[in-house]
Design a protein around this nucleic acid. Structure first.
Lengths: 208, 208
DNA sequence: CAATAACCGTACCCAGGGGTACGAAAACGT
DNA sequence: ACGTTTTCGTACCCCTGGGTACGGTTATTG
C-alpha cells in the first residue's frame, strides 16, 4: 500500500509539473507553482527530485518509459509492412507532436547548454531505445524480401524524415498547433506510401 | 559615412551577441556580458534594441536576410534538377546545422511560450520566405517534365524531410556535433537521389 | 573650434525565484 | 491510542540579472 500510494503521489506531481511546464515554459515554470498546484510543498519537491533540473530529468525518464511501452507494441508485428509502418508512424507522430513531448523537448533544448546530460537522457530513453528495434523490424522484412535496401539504418532515418518533415520543429517553435487525428493519419499514410515506393520489393535498384 | 559606421557597429554587436548566445544559451547570456565583450555599454544595447528579446529579434532578422540571400542564388537554376537540388540541399544543411542557426533556434524555442512573436519572425524570414520559391522551382521542373508529382508543396516537404531527417533536432539537443562538409554533401546527395526516385520523370504513377 | 549629440562606464534599483530551515499537522505503522 | 516519520506551509536567505539614471568622455556637425 505504501509503495503504491507514494508512486501515485509521485505521478500526480509529475503530471502537474508537465502541465505547468507546458503552460509556462521551463524558465517561467517555478517550483513554487508546481508545488502549490500539486498541493505539495516546495521542500518535498526538493527532497524528492534534488533540484529543478532533477525534476525535469524525472519527467524525461517517465515520458521515455511511456514512449517505449507504446511503440514496442507496434514493432513485433507479423502484419504486412504497410500496415505496421502506418501504425508505428501514427503512434510516433502522436507521441512526438503531443503537448507533453513538446514541452519536454522545449525544456531540454532550452537547457542544452547548461545541462547536456538532460539531452543524453532524452536520447537514451527515446531514440536510442526505439530506433534499433525499428531497424531490426525493417531488416526482418528485408529477409522476407518484402523490402529492399542496402542500409537499414538509412532506410529507417528516411522513414522518419518522410514522416515528420519539419513538423516537429515548427511545433517546438509554437507555429504549428497540435494536429488532429485525421492529419496525423494522413501523414502516416503518405510517409508509408512514399517509403514503400523507395524501398518496396518492386524497387530493387540503385540508391547506393 | 555616418550610416555605414553605425551599421558596422551594429553588426559587430550582433556578432558578439550570437557568439555569447551560442556559448551560454539564451537564459545564461547576460546583457552585461554582451555589452562588455562588444566594448559597448548596457545602456546602448537597451537604447538600440529595447530589451533582451528585442536583441534576439534583431539577431533573427539579420540571420533571415543571410539565409534568403544565400538560398535565392540556388533557386533560379536552369541546371538539371539533380544538380540544383544537391546545391540547394547542401546550402540549406550548412545554414540550418551551423552554430548561429542552432543558437538562434534554441533561443526561439526556449522563449516560445513567453514570446510567440519571435517564432513568427523566424518563420517569416526563413521558411515562409524560402519555401514558396522552392516550390515554384519544383513546379517549373514539372512543367518541363523533368519531375512528376501531384502536389508540389508536398514534394518540397518530402525533400526537406529526406534532407534533414532528425539531424536538426538532435543538433538542437546538443547530441550531434556540427557535421563536416563531407557529411553534409553525403546527406545532400542521398536526399537528392531518394527524391528523384520518388518524383523523377521515369516514375509517373500513384502516391495520391 | 565650439556645441551638440551619441556613447561609455559605473553604480544602482529591484523583482523573481532557486534553495534551505523549521515548527505544525497529518499519515502511517505498531 | 501513541510515537514516529513524512509532508505541509511559511518564512527566510541571497544572488543573479534585467532594466534605469547619470556624469564623464569621445565622436560628429556646422
Amino acid at each position: 500500500m505504501k509503495r503504491a500510494s507514494r508512486d501515485r503521489r509521485r505521478d500526480e506531481i509529475l503530471d502537474v509539473a508537465v502541465q505547468v511546464l507546458s503552460e509556462r515554459g521551463y524558465r517561467d515554470a517555478s517550483m513554487l507553482e508546481i508545488a502549490n498546484r500539486a498541493a505539495a510543498s516546495k521542500e518535498t519537491l526538493y527532497a524528492w527530485f534534488g533540484d529543478k533540473q532533477g525534476l525535469l530529468a524525472a519527467l524525461i525518464e517517465r515520458n521515455a518509459q511511456l514512449v517505449q511501452a507504446v511503440l514496442a507494441g507496434h514493432l513485433k508485428g507479423e502484419a504486412p509492412p504497410e500496415r505496421v509502418l502506418f501504425e508505428f508512424g501514427r503512434a510516433l507522430l502522436e507521441l512526438l507532436l503531443g503537448d507533453s513531448a513538446v514541452a519536454i523537448n522545449r525544456a531540454v533544448i532550452a537547457e542544452a547548454k547548461s545541462d547536456p546530460a538532460l539531452a543524453r537522457t532524452l536520447a537514451a530513453g527515446g531514440r536510442q531505445a526505439v530506433l534499433p528495434s525499428f531497424i531490426r523490424l525493417l531488416e526482418r522484412y528485408a529477409e522476407h524480401e518484402e523490402l529492399k535496401f542496402d542500409d537499414a539504418a538509412q532506410a529507417a532515418e528516411d522513414f522518419l524524415g518522410l514522416l515528420l518533415g519539419d513538423t516537429q520543429i515548427r511545433r517546438l517553435h509554437g507555429v504549428l498547433p497540435r494536429p488532429g487525428k485525421a492529419q496525423i493519419e494522413a501523414r502516416a499514410v503518405r510517409a508509408t506510401r512514399a517509403f514503400l515506393l523507395l524501398y518496396g520489393r518492386e524497387r530493387m535498384d540503385e540508391l547506393s
